[in-house]
Design a protein around this nucleic acid. Structure first.
Lengths: 218, 218
DNA sequence: GTTCATTCGATATTTTTTTATCGATAAAAT
DNA sequence: ATTTTATCGATAAAAAAATATCGAATGAAC
């Protein structure tokens, strides 16, 4: 893989914005636009134009052209490449309750390079069924099957109480990255990546912004 | 409300971490611990101790004590107060498909100060039913009902194609903050707060970290 | 062809966020 | 009582991220 150099130069903040650019660019492409300027992107996405240029130049192979901007299709390809959207990563999903089955059913993940190959649940009634095209296995088989499938990403969508145990099993099975939707802090070794999908944090930020808006207008 | 001064000094980054502290502290409280040090929090949450102290001192009323640390219960109360967890904000939910009903069913939101008072869906089969204790109304009534209920927060959990239209209706109804779970960029006036629950962005960051980990170990 | 307006990339500046350092304090140990 | 040690808060330094500035390039208008 030839992106070792890239990994170093691209900031976390930039990476977080790339998917938004990606979606935006696809809209533009669908609308038949061939090129787009950083100014336009910035305006629509409520960002700073310089920031957009910097973000894009960090991952783009072709430079933007004065007066025209960037080639939409090229940029999409660049982001695909950088984010690995074009080669699928296998993952397992643990917990197919409300949220879990919503995740399993979301076909869009494939577009983001994520391929859910198996699901697990502790509830015998769910075992053996298929959710969103993904087979559900008993929780007891978790570690063993993960190891056999050679999966590196685990998605945790179980109730709070069960999350830590699930994480432990995933790690035992060889998983190296955990996407955690349970509202708990997971205790894991330092060499395991955890990304908390922290709804509470999002909500906190939204509420704060709402408060600011309401405050500022009176 | 006496937190105008607070709003200014507390950084967005800090606000994003507060819910994690909150959960952590509640675990500690449940475990019977009276006090906790910034060092311990930092270690368990994989943060820097100075950062933790700064975050906490930004919202805490009582200072930490040398050799003991902070009073767990006080800190929880301080975060509750700062984040408004103790006074509920009403919200409406639009879209009760897989993700939407998972959200409606998640009772934990009440703990985060969010109270879903009504849900909407375009599918007549869903209208009239109740999801997670929340009644589902027809999409046509959205703007009218939102206005009548005087709700300021809207949660968008509809398919991509429908999201912009829903956002428009919400705003027409008087909503000032939108929590967007649809994978699209919403076009809204500048005085409306939007928080995108951007799964793709989270996934991008997780993948990147996974790549780093795998890279560093070989 | 010349001018104009738009956009770029590069560099510099500012702001924000994180991390390091250090003296002071108070609980615990001697 | 004295010493030791864990912890704090404050201040300083460093790192990261966002924003501003400006000359150069180039397509479009005249």
């Amino acid at each position: 893989m030839g992106n070792e150099k890239e990994l170093l130069n691209v900031s976390k903040a930039t990476i977080g914005r790339l998917p938004a650019y990606h979606r935006y660019l696809q809209e533009k492409l669908a609308a038949g636009e061939r090129t787009v300027s950083s100014t336009a992107i910035a305006e629509d996405l409520h960002l700073n134009a310089v920031q957009v240029r910097k973000d894009l130049s960090a991952i783009a192979r072709e430079a933007g052209k004065p007066k025209l901007g960037f080639a939409v299709a090229d940029l999409i390809a660049d982001i695909d490449r950088f984010l690995g959207y074009d080669n699928l990563n296998d993952a397992v999903l643990v917990g197919v309750g409300g949220l879990g089955s919503a995740l399993a059913g979301y076909s869009g993940f494939k577009n983001y390079g994520l391929n859910i190959v198996a699901a697990f649940d502790a509830d015998p009634a769910r075992v053996g069924t298929s959710v969103g095209g993904v087979k559900v296995f008993p929780a007891e088989e978790l570690a063993r099957l993960v190891r056999r499938l050679n999966v590196l990403i685990g998605i945790v969508a179980v109730p709070r109480e069960a999350a830590q145990g699930v994480a432990d099993e995933l790690i035992k099975g060889g998983v190296r990255a955990i996407w955690n939707f349970a509202p708990v802090h997971l205790n894991v070794p330092a060499d395991i990546a955890v990304k908390n999908e922290d709804m509470a944090a999002s909500l906190a930020i939204l509420s704060q912004r709402l408060a600011e808006i309401l405050n500022s207008e009176k």
